[in-house]
């Protein structure tokens, strides 16, 4: 079974993001970029499937500018076998990403695609569901456990609002990762060196026959309103008094 993992290059989760003064977006120049954390979990799951004998090959795919290759290298260092980079400088929205990934899936014919549940930059939470729709595949979102059964199905436990839910889905399957699926490994130095020799194929939206133009127009991006600084209270008694008599919330 081939496994395809989507890895997005995003502003690192530790960076204090700043809105650009002209209101067109957020500052990304000279900002630390990393693999979307949910995609690290995706790569880890795929590599574990390979180590467990369930997967034969793990392909890491990233879409976007040239620097996405660094994100692919990270996936290769974690244990993915090869990479595919769909090169474009166009702003990619989830529907376009799903269409491009579908074109890659049509070429590669994996049995399982693993995506993150959410990219921490656009916070869209869409791409995996859209990819499954375009492929007419089953989908298992927000996964915290994956079991590949011998009969062409998989059981996936999903994190839902009230707790956990388990579904059985037919392969081929699109799965999106949630935080509790696994704890991603750090790439070791020897594996980082080895990753440099692994192949990365270059593709373009044109070659894949997909128009990646954005559908949503961003009119402006602004900073959210700031909360006013509050006060420090000295004791629990003072706190309860303030909540009762000043804020009147209890």
């Amino acid at each position: 079974m081939k496994v395809l993992v989507a890895v997005k290059r995003v502003v690192d989760f530790n960076v204090k993001v700043r809105v650009k003064a002209d209101g067109t977006g957020v500052e990304t120049a000279n900002v630390k970029m990393s693999m979307n954390p949910f995609d690290e979990i995706g790569v880890e799951e795929a590599v574990r499937l390979k180590e467990g004998g369930k997967a034969t090959e793990v392909i890491a795919v990233s879409l976007g500018p040239t620097q996405c290759q660094e994100t692919i290298r990270t996936a290769l260092a974690m244990g993915a076998d090869r990479g595919i980079h769909v090169q474009t400088d166009v702003e990619l929205q989830p529907l376009a990403v799903a269409k491009l990934l579908k074109a890659v899936v049509d070429k590669e014919q994996p049995q399982l695609c693993i995506l993150g549940k959410q990219a921490i930059d656009d916070d869209a939470n869409q791409t995996g569901q859209m990819l499954a729709a375009l492929l007419s595949w089953s989908q298992a979102t927000f996964a915290s456990k994956l079991v590949i059964n011998g009969d062409g199905t998989a059981n996936v436990t999903r994190e839902v609002d009230g707790g956990l839910e388990t579904i059985q889905a037919k392969l081929p399957l699109v799965m999106t990762t949630d935080l509790r699926l696994n704890e991603p490994r750090y790439a070791s130095l020897p594996n980082i060196m080895k990753a440099k020799k692994k192949p990365i194929e270059q593709l373009t939206p044109e070659a894949l026959g997909v128009d990646p133009a954005p559908r949503l127009k961003t009119l402006k991006v602004v900073e959210p309103p700031k909360r006013k600084a509050g006060v420090k209270v000295k004791s629990v008694a003072e706190l309860v008094d303030k909540l009762r008599n000043e804020a009147k919330v209890i």
């Binding site: 989760f13 993001v17 921490i120 930059d121 916070d123 949503l216 961003t218 991006v221 900073e223």
Partner: peptide, 11 residues
Amino acid sequence: IYAGNALATVQ
């Protein structure tokens, strides 16, 4: 977007 660090108006 960005964990509530920015508000985007989209059409």
